[in-house]
């Protein structure tokens, strides 16, 4: 029984890491095709993708869209959570439901709705349009995380600050935000990751300047290539690095 468990664990890890392992390994392939037998290693594909201006432009675009859309989603989500956690407004259940609703809808549907709406008002596909879409998907996430993190003791601290004469903005800035710092950081980084990785909204709502997943998608049309492995491995590396940083900063503090 015990041995069986360890065998299962090993097989599961094998299955989970098989594609990523192959991806990274064959990014060092010295040849045209990222399939066995393995020749190499070479780093020429990395040099290729790092020198590819379209890819690098897409990478910068992705970073910009992710940073901007996460920041907007975070601010909107924070303010809304503050408002709804504070007093029972008439219809606050409906408002909460409305703010969370986009989470249950497929990205494809959100993208399609925005595409036809933007067409209608004459807004051209652009990074800005994709960013708006990313705020739509990340706002519920930020709101939910921050709303869950707000407790009675925070409300009491806010009341105390107001009682001591702090203005509304100063309460938010000096009391609420610092008390919610771990949740704010977690919400921002999760939003950043989702936006960074998001494909379908970016695909439908951008045209000339595109984000990295869309650029990688267009690389796929030319079939398997070690260059795609190289850029894929780089993205993986960035995500893992981000995750490790998160693990040792934000989440450690959240768990205390």
């Amino acid at each position: 029984m015990r041995v069986l468990g360890w065998i299962y664990l090993a097989l599961a890890y094998g299955f989970i890491f098989l594609p990523v392992g192959a991806l990274v390994l064959f990014s060092f392939q010295d040849g045209r095709l990222p399939v066995p037998p393995f020749n190499g290693p070479t780093v020429k594909w990395y040099a290729d993708v790092l020198g590819d201006r379209d890819l690098m432009a897409a990478l910068v675009n992705s970073l910009m869209v992710a940073a901007a859309s996460s920041a907007v989603a975070l601010v909107l989500g924070f303010l809304a959570a503050q408002g709804l956690a504070r007093v029972a407004l008439p219809g606050s259940v409906v408002m909460r439901g409305l703010l969370i609703a986009p989470m249950t809808v497929s990205y494809l549907i959100i993208a399609l709705g925005l595409l036809s709406a933007f067409n209608h008002i004459g807004l051209r596909p652009s990074l800005m349009a994709a960013g708006i879409g990313h705020v739509v998907i990340n706002l519920p996430l930020c709101f939910a995380i921050l709303f869950a993190a707000m407790g009675a003791h925070q409300q009491n601290a806010e009341r105390a600050a107001r009682d001591l004469g702090a203005s509304e903005l100063r309460v938010l800035w000096h009391v609420s935000a610092p008390m919610l710092r771990p949740a704010l950081l977690a919400a921002f980084f999760l939003s950043f990751t989702f936006s960074w990785d998001e494909f379908i909204i970016a695909f439908l709502l951008t045209r000339f300047d595109v984000t990295l997943p869309v650029e990688i998608w267009s690389m796929l049309r030319s079939g398997l290539s070690p260059a795609t492995n190289a850029i894929g491995s780089l993205v993986f590396l960035v995500s893992v690095a981000l995750l490790v940083v998160l693990e040792f900063t934000v989440f450690r503090k959240v768990r205390k």
Binding site: A12, Y13, I16, F17, L18, P19, V20, A22, L23, F26, L33, P34, V35, P36, T193, D197, F199, L212, P213, I216, W217, L220, L224, T228, N229, I231, G232, V235, F236, S239, V240, L242, L243
Partner: peptide, 26 residues
């Protein structure tokens, strides 16, 4: 470790299965 590849790009993950499952794949 069990969820590490979860955090790689979704597009890249599908691509890497194409890599592994193809006729010449591992």
């Amino acid at each position: 470790l069990a969820v590490l590849p979860f955090w790689t790009s979704y597009v890249v993950r599908s691509y890497s299965w194409a890599l592994v499952l193809g006729a010449n794949g591992v």
